[in-house]
Amino acid sequence: MTAVVETRDLTVRYAGATALDGVDLTVHDHEMVALIGANGAGKSTLVKALSGLLRPDSGTITVDGRLAQVPEGREMFGDLTVDDNLRLGGWRNGRGGRDTTAIYDLLPDLAGIRTRRAGALSGGQQQMVAIGRALMARPDVLVVDELSLGLAPLIVTTLVGHLRALNTGRGLAVLLIEQNARLALDLCDRAYVLEAGRIALHGRAADLARDPRVAAAYLGGHIEVTR
């Protein structure tokens, strides 16, 4: 197994406040990895650093291959059509890499709404577009920031199915950031727990799901508060 994503001692600060503090994290090819953590733990900061939108203050990030992200909040080009949103996902590939037909095969739900304005879609449809847009980059690893946030369970099941299919069918590595820890731990091979910018725990997802500390903090008897 080779690593597609590897961070070593990654530290990121915002105007003084440290958001990530010495993070070591690895995603191997063909692997599905979960990253869970409370609000403000630094998950989205890690996503931004991995995609090169934030410069680390220290430490290294190695990405072997291509990384694409499904950003938190879906971040549609609201005034543009679904098809244009997808097309722009292939921006880095140049003109030859912007054909969207393959995406409609992978995510058939999108075919029916290809000419709709992305801003006018439901949350679930937008999340589908966001995944399709990321896939347009032909990534080797897909980073999904908050897959299920604000979506109905049925839609989440569909999206999870797509991710699993992409992982097993095409060998796409996935780093999944998820508020719903149980979902993430069920779906993934390995998992990391981020607390206040540090990796507090990591290991096989199945083991973590049984870990009393994880159970108490993330799977526990209290109702998960989602925004």
Partner: peptide, 12 residues
């Protein structure tokens, strides 16, 4: 024009 952050995300 529509979403500056998303534009950065896709590499524009």
């Amino acid at each position: 024009a529509s979403n500056r952050y998303a534009a950065q995300v896709v590499g524009i």
